[in-house]
């Protein structure tokens, strides 16, 4: 038993932790590419869900467990479901004619804009000395401390977000209600 524990501790945890971040990050990028490019809306929405799940795993592997689980609950549980429902509710008219999934001027302008932005961002990221800092040891982010911060230092933003969410959800319900006008 002790022997096994020693072998377990001797595993190269740094390298393993790195792959625990990089593998889900790769899955996330592939799924996001699928969500952007797939013609079938339901397939794109499912790719988006997979991308959200992988992003949550990246958060957890980076040590932000609470944010990772919030990401899984809110995005995978609520936002992805909302998007699938919206696709189902607005679908029939889209099936008329197999036209291009891309907007009027075609994808060229958008892809060029995206490529220009990506090149600029990567140039800045890879030339910045601040981005070369090595990884510090794993910080601890206990949920109790997050709760303390939310209830003490961040209590005003927390209440503001509560008001915002209430207003947004009531507003969404009012917007989507059927008009009963004669």
């Amino acid at each position: 038993m002790n022997d096994l524990l020693q072998k377990f501790n001797a595993l190269p945890w740094d390298a393993i932790g790195q792959w625990l971040v990089l593998l889900p990050a790769g899955v996330m990028l592939l799924a996001a590419a699928g969500a952007v490019a797939l013609r079938n809306l339901i397939h794109a929405a499912l790719c988006l869900t997979l991308s959200f799940i992988a992003l949550g795993i990246v958060f957890i592997a980076l040590g932000a467990e609470f944010v990772g689980f919030v990401q899984l609950l809110v995005y995978v549980g609520a936002v992805a479901m909302l998007i699938v429902f919206a696709i189902l509710l607005t679908r029939p008219s889209d099936l008329a004619g197999a036209m291009s999934p891309f907007a009027g001027f075609g994808p060229v302008g958008g892809i060029l804009t995206g490529a220009a932005l990506l090149i600029a961002l990567l140039a800045f990221i890879f030339s910045s000395p601040a981005a070369k800092t090595p990884m510090p040891s794993m910080p601890v982010a206990p949920v109790a401390q997050i709760g303390n911060l939310l209830m003490l230092d961040f209590v005003v933003p927390l209440q503001a977000v509560g008001v915002l969410l209430t207003a947004a959800l009531i507003g969404a319900a009012v917007l989507a209600m059927e008009d009963k006008k004669p």
């Binding site: 971040v21 958008g110 804009t113 932005l117």
Partner: peptide
Amino acid sequence: MTLQILLAVSAVLFTFGLVAALTRR
């Protein structure tokens, strides 16, 4: 692993989102 890799992943993800928002019908 350095910060660069994570920032690069994030930049690529942002670009995918921008392309989707600009081009999808």
